[in-house]
Design a protein around this nucleic acid. Sequence first.
DNA 1: ACCTATACTGATACTGCATCTCAATACGGA
DNA 2: TCCGTATTGAGATGCAGTATCAGTATAGGT
Lengths: 139, 139
Amino acid sequence: MSSAAVRDRMLAAGQRITRQRDVVAGVLERARRPLGAGEICDAVTTSDPDVGRATVFRTLHSLVAAEIVQRVTLAGGQSGYLLCAADGHHHHLVCTSCGRTTDLPEAVVAPFLSRVEETHGFTVDHSSFDVHGRCADCR
Amino acid sequence: MSSAAVRDRMLAAGQRITRQRDVVAGVLERARRPLGAGEICDAVTTSDPDVGRATVFRTLHSLVAAEIVQRVTLAGGQSGYLLCAADGHHHHLVCTSCGRTTDLPEAVVAPFLSRVEETHGFTVDHSSFDVHGRCADCR
DNA sequence: ACCTATACTGATACTGCATCTCAATACGGA
DNA sequence: TCCGTATTGAGATGCAGTATCAGTATAGGT
């Protein structure tokens, strides 16, 4: 995903484009894997020391709200932030070895959730799966 | 689950039974829903003001390690601690209305994980699902 | 019932993530 | 260019969780 694409998606979500948001989005783009809050703050400060911590978190929050970034749970239990190529809410496989993530196709997830709803009379509002393991490359 | 059952499970996990651990386990037993760290600390202090913070967290850690308690993600994204009736690792449905949880049978989860492994050549080490919605009673 | 090794505990300081406040600033539409 | 308003930075603050370490209580053997 290019910076331009991220900007378009932020504009589409009614958000202004600022230098600070570009920096945060750029850090996540270059990582191509989920980053912890500390890593993001460090990388942002390296890129541009004049971006405040509060702004980093506000930006992450905005990006999560716009579904451009997802908050995922890393192996240790800490949360990480991941820039998603795909639009909308979806799920990921996280490789415990290389740290990279793979999108889980809706075709695999939807039948599972339907089954859950049927079996338990439960209406699913929101779901997030943390599936950790070793990807095909790392095995 | 009775207090005695929890004590047995702690002993089975090679842990000593102490007054402090009884207090923490008792708080989780009475709740019958996931509690946040703050709620637990408050309830423990109410029950017995002489139990230290560090001990509460150490106890939670031990209970999680023994798979007596699971750490789940609540609606807001904060994590909560839940005393599980079932042994071993399993998954939950969390009702956003009443806060109560339902165990997800392995029979529903296993085929889904198998499908994921087959489709992606991914070896699943650990998975945790956060499924939020409204339970049958609350609809 | 007693003894002993050692697992456990409490107070406190500390780390890290995240949010709040508020005056100052910059974006972007007209 | 001008203006309304979303956004920003600094620093204080809150909350979750961990580290330290001397002192205590538990389980299990005798």
